[in-house]
Computed example of a mutant assay.
Amino acid sequence: MITSEPIGDWTWEVTTGEELRPVQAAEAAVTVWNVLESYGLAQPTGRVSVSARSVEEARDVRVQAVGLPLAQDPLSPDTALSHAMTEVDSLEGGFVVGVRVECPGYWLESGARHRAEKLFAIQVDIWKSSLLVATLQTYGDAWLTMDTRGREQPDLHAVNAPRLAGALQGISRVFGVTPTPGAMNRHATPSAEGFEDPRIEGLAYTDSWGTFEIAERSRLLRSGIPDSEDEYEESTDHPVRYFTVRRNGRTLGYVWASLGDDAAGYEPRTAAGEEAFRLGAAWLLRLRTAHRQGLTPLAALAWSAQSAPSSQAGEIVEDTPQEAPSLDFLEELSGRY
């Protein structure tokens, strides 16, 4: 399953005894990215953000560049990252310099390679030009012996966990220190080699994905639109009908309607990344319009399929809706692949 919040993280703290230059934060982030790529975990594309804020006053932000494209050679002259680091380097005074890379990456399953637009995130901070702190986060559960719904997955673990363990070791060799695993969270317990085995340690929650991720996805989906009481119910215990929403050949999510009550909505495909949530909000607004017109959920589904919210919001790919035995089934589909 793919999550919108990290299921685990590892941190390396490096003190060199020499003054660190701001560009070394970017160099370290790119190095970690390269290690992930060498183990087949990361795609050589992505987005990078750069910040510089005062050590004394965190709200005093001097540089804030968000969502810059990560080029194949990201620190070569004239790249967006190179320009941002030049701006940071021109600052005078004590600053915390931060570089964050969100990495598209791959996990293996049933002999196929599956991609998530944010499978890993790399955060590198330099404090007062003397301490470098690098953190790696993962947003997938392919490395676990039990998935985040509490089901054993020995085959998935066997082909993916060694790749993650190798990458962690490779990053440790680069920095010359071993990582400090993050604390146990509601999804999993990180270790220096990957994750603890929940079959031995026990699960914090039997179905952490269903318990927490569904609510978090709903929050992210609705964060970009105003609150409204003029909408269908968010959940149902009945079977649902749904259409697949795609844009530029990529599945972004599923717009659905209940067969038995007044529920309808949109399930973002988490692996598609921020685009699934951003464009999914347009489909929710479309359903609100249908609700104001007094349409039943199934009528709203048909109406939405005939008239997409906009040319940029994706398109319905089926002529007739598919049927799922439950909303949980559709939620799992949108969170798994």
Rank of each mutant, 00 (worst) to 15 (best):
Ser4Asp: 08
Ile7Phe: 06
Gly8Leu: 10
Asp9Tyr: 15
Trp10Ile: 08
Thr11Arg: 10
Trp12Arg: 07
Glu18Gln: 14
Glu27Cys: 00
Thr31Trp: 12
Trp33Ala: 10
Asn34Gly: 02
Glu37Pro: 00
Pro44Met: 06
Arg47Leu: 04
Val48Ala: 02
Arg59Thr: 11
Val63Asn: 01
Val63Gln: 03
Gln64Gly: 04
Pro69Leu: 05
Ala71Val: 01
Ala80Ser: 14
Ala80His: 13
Leu81Ser: 02
Ala84Cys: 09
Asp89Glu: 15
Gly94Asn: 09
Val101Lys: 01
Glu102Cys: 00
Pro104His: 10
Pro104Thr: 01
Pro104Leu: 06
Gly111Phe: 02
Gly111Cys: 02
Phe120Val: 00
Ile122Thr: 04
Val124Trp: 09
Lys128Ser: 15
Ala142Phe: 12
Thr145Ala: 15
Gly170Ile: 10
Arg173Thr: 10
Pro181Cys: 14
Met184Ala: 15
Ser191Leu: 06
Ser191Met: 07
Glu193Thr: 13
Arg199Glu: 13
Leu203Glu: 15
Tyr205Thr: 03
Trp209Leu: 03
Ala215Arg: 13
Glu216Met: 02
Glu216Pro: 00
Leu220Asp: 09
Arg222Tyr: 09
Ser223Val: 05
Ser223Gly: 03
Ser223Asn: 08
Glu229Lys: 12
Glu234Asp: 14
His238Gly: 02
Val245Cys: 02
Thr251Ile: 14
Tyr254Val: 00
Val255Asp: 11
Ala257Glu: 05
Asp261Pro: 07
Thr270Cys: 03
Ala272Cys: 05
Leu279Phe: 06
Leu284Gln: 11
Ala290Val: 00
Arg292Gln: 13
Leu301Val: 10
Ala302Lys: 08
Ser307Ala: 13
Ser311Lys: 09
Val317Phe: 05
Leu330Val: 06
Glu332Pro: 00
Arg336Met: 12
